[in-house]
């Protein structure tokens, strides 16, 4: 699946987008997998309360299942307007 990062999450991880091969069942499982990879991921995902997640461009939550999902995005709370 495609995993996208925005704002300071993108800066901390150091890339805007990557393809991830995973069997993670939920968003939390995916976060745990990514965090175990490298420090920069662990740093970005250290405080999940400061993060939001979208699945296929719809706001979701960290307990949500990933089956059938093609695009996951992680970002801080939005500041539009």
């Amino acid at each position: 699946m495609d995993v996208l990062y925005f704002a300071w999450v993108r800066e901390r991880i150091g890339l805007p987008k990557e393809k991830v091969e995973t069997d993670a069942a939920t968003v939390s499982d995916l976060v745990a997998e990514l965090s175990a990879r490298e420090d920069r991921y662990a740093a970005a995902f250290a405080d999940l309360s400061a993060l939001r997640v979208a699945l296929d461009q719809e706001l979701s939550d960290f307990d949500a299942p990933l089956s059938g999902v093609r695009e996951v995005a992680f970002f801080p709370p939005m500041t539009g307007g």
Binding site: F6, A7, A54, L59, A73, F75, P76, P77, M78, T79, G80, G81
Partner: peptide, 10 residues
């Protein structure tokens, strides 16, 4: 728009 549209300001 402030909290549900995916924009981020720097």
């Amino acid at each position: 728009l402030k909290s549900r549209a995916p924009f981020w300001k720097k």
